[in-house]
C-alpha cells in the first residue's frame, strides 16, 4: 500500500497547495488523480516519489517511510522527459542509471520499441516521444512497487500512446504494481482507471 497520510505542502513561504490530504493506492490498482491545471497534481506526484518533502504528514510504502537513499520503490515518470534526463549523458548511460540487469534492460527496450541506434545519442538528439520511452524504461528497470505516471503520453501520437499504455498495463498486471496516473484526456482515463481520486 502506497499511502499519503495527512499531507500538507506549499512552495517556499507560499500558500498551502493542500492541507491534510490523504491517499492510498493498493498494488494492482490504477488510480487517476483528477484536478484542474495548476492544482498541484505534479507536486503531489513528486512528494509521493520522494522528490519533495511535505511540510506535514508522511508518505508510507507498505508501512515504512520512503528510503532516503538507494533505489526508491516509488518511481515517477514525468510530464517533460527532456527535463528528467541528464543532457550530458548518452541515452545508454541514462538507462543504466536504474541499475538493472542487461537482460532486463534489453527486454524493456524491445517492449517499448527503443531502437539500438538511439542508445549512443544525447537527449537533445531524440524527440520527446522517444525520450519518454527511455524514461518509462528507466522507471520500470528500477523494479518499482508503485509507479506514478504524470501525463506520460501527452507528447505521444495516438498509435504510440496505445502501444505504450498496453506495455505499462501489462507490466503493471504482471508485477502487481500500484499505478497512480494523471491525464487530462477523459477518454484515456476512462480506459485505464479503476478509481478516480479528486485532489481537493
Amino acid at each position: 500500500m502506497l499511502e499519503a497520510r495527512a499531507i500538507s505542502f506549499g512552495y517556499g513561504s507560499g500558500p498551502l497547495l493542500y492541507e491534510g490530504f490523504s491517499l492510498a493506492v493498493a498494488p494492482g490498482e490504477r488510480v487517476q488523480l483528477a484536478a484542474p491545471s495548476g492544482a498541484g497534481k505534479t507536486t503531489l506526484a513528486r512528494i509521493l516519489a520522494g522528490y519533495e518533502r511535505p511540510r506535514a504528514g508522511t508518505v508510507l510504502v507498505d508501512g515504512a517511510p520512503l528510503p532516503r537513499r538507494g533505489r526508491c520503490p516509488v518511481q515517477l515518470v514525468g510530464q517533460h522527459p527532456e527535463l528528467t534526463v541528464d543532457p550530458r549523458q548518452t541515452m545508454a548511460a541514462v538507462l543504466a542509471e536504474a541499475g538493472a540487469a542487461p537482460e532486463e534492460e534489453e527486454r524493456l527496450r524491445a517492449l517499448l520499441g527503443i531502437q539500438d541506434r538511439w542508445l549512443t545519442r544525447y537527449p537533445r538528439e531524440l524527440s520527446g516521444g522517444e525520450l519518454q520511452r527511455f524514461c518509462i524504461a528507466r522507471a520500470l528497470a528500477a523494479s518499482p512497487r508503485y509507479l506514478i505516471a504524470d501525463e506520460v503520453s501527452t507528447m505521444l501520437d495516438a498509435v504510440t500512446q496505445a502501444q505504450i499504455w498496453s506495455v505499462l498495463l501489462a507490466e503493471a498486471r504482471g508485477r502487481d504494481l500500484g499505478l497512480l496516473f494523471v491525464s487530462h484526456s477523459p477518454a484515456l482515463a476512462a480506459r485505464i482507471a479503476t478509481r478516480v481520486v479528486p485532489l481537493a
Partner: peptide
C-alpha cells in the same frame, strides 16, 4: 503541441 498539460477546459 500547445495543449499537453492543460486540462480539457483550458485546452
Amino acid at each position: 503541441e500547445p495543449t499537453p498539460g492543460l486540462d480539457l477546459d483550458l485546452a
